[in-house]
Amino acid sequence: MELLLPLFLNGVVNGAHYALLAMGFGMIFATTGVVHFAYGPVYAVAAYLTWWSVTVLSLPFLVAMGVGIVGCAVVGMASYVLLYRWFLRNDSPPFIILVVSLGLLMLITNLIGVAFGTNAKTVNDVTYGFYFIGSAVVTGVQLWQVLALVVVGLGLAAFMKWTAYGSYIRAMQDNMLMAKIVGINTERVSLVVFGIGSGISGIAASLILVKEGALPHMGFLAVFYAFLAAVVGGLGSLPGAVAGGLILGLVESLGVWRVSSDWQTTIAFGVLFIVLIWRPTGLWKGY
């Protein structure tokens, strides 16, 4: 039983990470209709830029994190402008755009490998504390991960509710044709959404860099979990992304209480199947 608390806390921390990823991924899909699998390597770009800023430029971690976030937001926006926009303008079928995003995933992943090498990159100069919660130990980075989810979640909710661009995004998620009819510049809003969605993944990437380091293929698993959490929670829903991420994190973590950790991915898919049979559109709808 004494394992339960650490497993629970680990589940919350991993869930917060998945939820952050799901927020950005779900926002991009629900607004633009693009299943942006290249979201994974774009997330990896942030980790590598943060690492490069810390180790090569000797920037303080928070500044380096900013470089990573802005850098991956720019890469995300570039992927929309240079690639997806053309296919969307030409009314390409969704599966064509899906194939394009998979191609982009491979391309960016390989470019990262070519630019930075395939060995793991770590930042050792970032110091953080250790905290006891009952019998469990939690690191400062893990607390940052949970805090990042809270801050980004509340900030995004306020943005969606109170700003003009937030209402345009909600309008596009509801009815793309009507959004065009009322005169919303849907391409400009899509660009902003790619920037925000990718930027959110950059926050998660910078924190995972401190915790686990960076590898060129780190984006594969990240986009996989982002996709799962977003679908379980309800694509495009902010509370859904949080719920989906936390459910995945908790089930996955608590699952290894009784079974081998080799089963973690299987458990995640099991959760997806159960939720989708129960609620085919995910747990949540709307903001």
């Binding site: 003009a164 209402s167 345009y168 909600r170 309008a171 998620q173 509801d174 009815n175 044709l177 009507m178 009819i181 009322v182 005169g183 919303i184 709808k285 709307g286």
Partner: peptide, 29 residues
């Protein structure tokens, strides 16, 4: 739209998940 040409599409052109007020305000983009 900016130049005074508006269009109401077939089949109730509204944003179903938004409130009536939010729908109307989207007309003032």
């Amino acid at each position: 739209v900016k130049n005074g040409f508006s269009f109401v599409p077939q089949g109730h052109g509204v944003f179903r998940s938004l409130t009536v007020e939010e729908n109307l305000m989207l007309g003032t983009t």
